[in-house]
Design a protein around this nucleic acid. Structure first.
Length: 161
DNA sequence: TAGGCCATCTGGTCCT
DNA sequence: AGGACCAGATGGCCTA
């Protein structure tokens, strides 16, 4: 698990270096499809800057079906990444936080969904419920499924209204 | 420099 | 047959 707790005190990482600007998944997909129609240069695999992901040049002699399958696979993965971006935008994060990895996004989302379910069942105001749980634990439970340090650390930054 | 994360390629499997 | 999905392999980038 990636380091999830960041120090915002003096001496910690600069806030600008932690600030993550979410890309626009729709624009990425559109750019990708436009690039596929053009004949771009290919920087090679690796890296996570999706803006540098034009279609690769077609290797001489590579079967047409294999090229088409590669293209479909890249397009599919772009769709998958767009879904991850959307999910990242829905889970609670610190004001200045690195971009969540895919695995952290899934774990955090799982815990967050469990929390929201508990809040619905409780009928309480979300903030009241969370504060009570953080003080004395979830009512009637040993330990709520969502009560992980990853999520609870971020809950203090959630605006419930 | 090692480890984490990620994009891409590739071959296999399943479905329409 | 062709497309969607999946998992393994590979290599690049970044950070501690």
């Amino acid at each position: 698990m990636e380091e999830l707790c960041y120090s915002f005190e003096e001496g910690g990482p600069a806030a600008e270096s932690l600030l993550w600007e979410p890309p626009d998944p729709g624009a990425q997909l559109e750019n990708f499809l436009l690039e596929c129609l053009a004949e771009p240069s290919w920087p090679g695999p690796g890296g996570d800057d999706l803006n540098k992901l034009p279609a690769p040049p077609e290797p001489v002699g590579q079967p047409r079906q294999r090229r088409a399958a590669n293209l479909r696979e890249r397009r599919r993965m772009l769709g998958l990444n767009a879904a991850f971006e959307a999910l990242r935008g829905r889970v609670p994060t610190f004001p200045y936080e690195r971009r969540l990895s895919k695995i952290d996004t899934l774990r955090l989302a799982t815990a967050y969904i469990a929390l929201l379910g508990d809040i619905l069942l409780s009928g309480c105001h979300p903030q009241t419920y969370v504060e009570q749980c953080l003080r004395s634990g979830a009512p009637g439970r040993q330990r709520a499924a969502w009560n992980t340090s990853d999520l609870t650390a971020r809950l203090s930054w959630v605006k419930w209204d």
